[in-house]
Design a protein around this nucleic acid. Sequence first.
RNA 1: CGGGGAGUGGCGCAGCCUGGUAGCGCAUCUGCUUUGGGAGCAGAGGGUCGCAGGUUCGAAUCCUGUCUCCCCGACCA
Length: 439
Amino acid sequence: MRLSQSFLPVLKESPAGAEVASHKLMLQAGLIRQTSSGIYAWLPLGNRVLRKIEQIVREEQDRVGQEILMPTIQPADLWKESGRYDAYGPEMLRINDRHGREMLYGPTNEDMVTALFRDDVKSYRELPRMLYHIQWKFRDEVRPRFGVMRGREFLMKDAYSFDLDEAGAKISYYRQLLAYLRTFRRMGIRAVPMQADSGPIGGKLSHEFVVLAPSGESEVFYDGKIEEVDLEREGLSYDDAEALEALFREATGVYARTDETHEERYWDAVPAERQRTGRGIEVGHIFYFGIRYSEAMGLKVSGPDGTMLVPHMGSYGIGVSRLVGAIIEASHDDNGIVWPEAVAPYKVGIVTMRADDADTVAAAERIYAALGEAGVEALYDDRDERGGVKLGGMDLMGLPWQVVIGPRGLKDGVVEVKNRKSGEREQLTIEDAIAKLSA
RNA sequence: CGGGGAGUGGCGCAGCCUGGUAGCGCAUCUGCUUUGGGAGCAGAGGGUCGCAGGUUCGAAUCCUGUCUCCCCGACCA
């Protein structure tokens, strides 16, 4: 993409009203704009990141489940069936349609997915199943803050498992645990599974996935031993129940809790040199809650012996839009965002130091075209701006690689390739630069 | 929901206390000079001061109401 043709409003000054780094940087680098308290429009740059994260989540979820898409607007009756309509409180946005029917903007989808499943699944032969969708949710938070990390409207992946019994449900839980570990790893961040409260959804088994960042919302305590465990298990098959259970024991067997569930007596048992504390941002949450919804909503299937069975369920959420902020919290510096390559809006930023120099422009065009042919996503700053402005903008936007082209280098036949994260610069010929960035 | 604060050109702010018809920086536009880490000079455009009432000869400024946004806390994917 050419910057001269982009809608990419970068602010020179840090906007008022933003407290945490990710919020400031997202506004400043032109990723989002607020439209109401806790509600944001995603501009091109932010939207690209959001889509990349969404796609990674989708690919990993497709290995354990099937994607569906449920509506944002739900009928209140569904929630009355599960008994949650009154329980949920003012966080739920309730609306009436023109006929006065009670509707709501879904804060989550357990009720709806249970009804959908109940209406069509009648036999034990059709279990287990895992369904997920990636959809916008709305929770009318009393006090939205921290930009997209605590918005009212947010994009979330939520998956739902249906199993014949508790043993099966646990396998589903383990599968999601592994899927989550792999998902976050692919995004270039470390998310530690921590024992959690099951909260208002209610449940028996529950873990939060927490990204460590100084500005995190909750305090976390964990045993450093978890850093040594290879949690993603490259070769591990989702069909290997025993190995999954072993992974679960290993991943959750060490002490790792947020301040909500922290208990000194267990903490004290962790060797002092391995005690790690810090702050964390919750980016995912997995629950096993048994028959809470299936029972309330009349979901049952015929068992092998003709008796009716009530399926055990679990739900598994990932805050997709929140992750955009969380990743920035975990990866930025004084100059701006530092995107992990997997979620960067573009891999390469191309900068011409002198837009009035024909050789410089020709070299930039050549590199831009070559990267395009190689399928490398590049943002080409072809504006007639001073070099410093462009370099500052590139650092702010945080693209993993920058190619800086100017007469000074071209005189010696080279361009500069800079790594945003390490700051390392290399002088390469145009061809070498193209080859390096296309790799 | 309790406590606090703010709404003034696109962005960031001053002016308000002590009413007299709106200003600064950045951005934008034009011209010239510049050009390897956020250029300089000259000129120009752009605001019914959140909204509604009220007081007054006169309101951005004082009073009342209202809406919105932000911060601390409680709450939360």
